[in-house]
């Protein structure tokens, strides 16, 4: 009886040894594999890189130049093919500017095969009602409204020559109701199971801000500080203004 008990005890120890070892090695191997994804944003006009002060033709036939173009790209997520893995970038607020930041890195992205990307243009309500924030939301970035607390989500400033008028273009789009989420398929799946790095390229096409469903004639509409004019620009977002050009 005693012997049997002792051998059973020994057996237990012997049997549990491999588990002890595997537990150790598993800890190292099971550390979830992660990747880094570089997201770049290209600002285009009629398919060419946006250039400051270069004369462009608007969809309504006016000539215009751009001096400043910037917008907040926020709330970035990657969603795996099976829907089980969702990567949510922490503190995800990126001020994309034509002559400054045009990209950012997503860190610690779990290894999975992703085929969808979610993001927003603008600053969500939770962060849009205070301005004493740091980084890309710092008020020194010239994207804060001082008369009505909140951020300009998208800013375009330049000059236009219309059919009857010449003047400044000032489009400041903000306000909670104009925060817009996009959910897009990647052109090809981003498979991070085998490689530690990925790339995603987003493109904005400026002329599509002025095309559909609201054809913007600068003679009639050349200023927006929130309100209904800004709303027209926002409603035009969804027809080609921003897209995922590639992911690999």
């Amino acid at each position: 009886m005693l012997i049997r008990f002792r051998s059973a005890f020994l057996l237990l120890i012997v049997l549990s040894l491999p588990f002890a070892f595997s537990a150790c090695s598993d800890d190292k191997e099971k550390e979830p594999a992660t990747a880094t994804v570089q997201v770049n944003v290209q600002s285009l006009v009629d398919g060419q890189n946006l250039q400051r002060d270069y004369p462009y033709q608007s969809p309504a036939g006016d000539t215009y130049t751009v001096q400043k173009f910037r917008f907040y790209l926020s709330n970035v997520k990657l969603i795996s093919e099976d829907g089980h893995t969702v990567y949510t970038e922490p503190d995800s607020y990126h001020l994309i500017t034509m002559d400054g930041k045009s990209g950012f890195k997503l860190e610690n992205v779990p290894a999975a095969r992703y085929n969808k990307m979610e993001f927003a243009i603008g600053v969500d309500e939770a962060r849009n009602h205070t301005i004493d924030q740091f980084g890309d939301l710092d008020p020194s970035n010239d994207m804060v409204w001082d008369w009505n607390t909140g951020y300009k989500f998208l800013l375009l400033e330049g000059l236009f020559t219309g059919d009857t008028k010449v003047g400044g273009l000032v489009f400041h789009v903000g306000e909670d109701s104009n925060f817009m989420l996009f959910n897009m398929d990647l052109p090809q799946a981003l498979d991070l199971r085998q490689k530690p790095d990925g790339n995603i390229v987003l493109q904005t096409e400026l002329s599509d801000l002025f095309r559909t469903p609201h054809l913007i004639d600068f003679d009639e509409l050349n200023t927006a500080m929130g309100g209904e004019n800004a709303r027209k620009i926002v409603e035009n977002y969804e027809n080609g203004f921003i897209k995922v050009a590639s992911g690999n």
Binding site: H129, T130, I131, D132, P139, V144, D146, W147, N148, T149, G150
Partner: peptide, 16 residues
Amino acid sequence: GGAKNLEAVSMGPLTH
């Protein structure tokens, strides 16, 4: 009431 809180209000007079 355009400035929503005290941390936002000073931005107006500072920059106007």
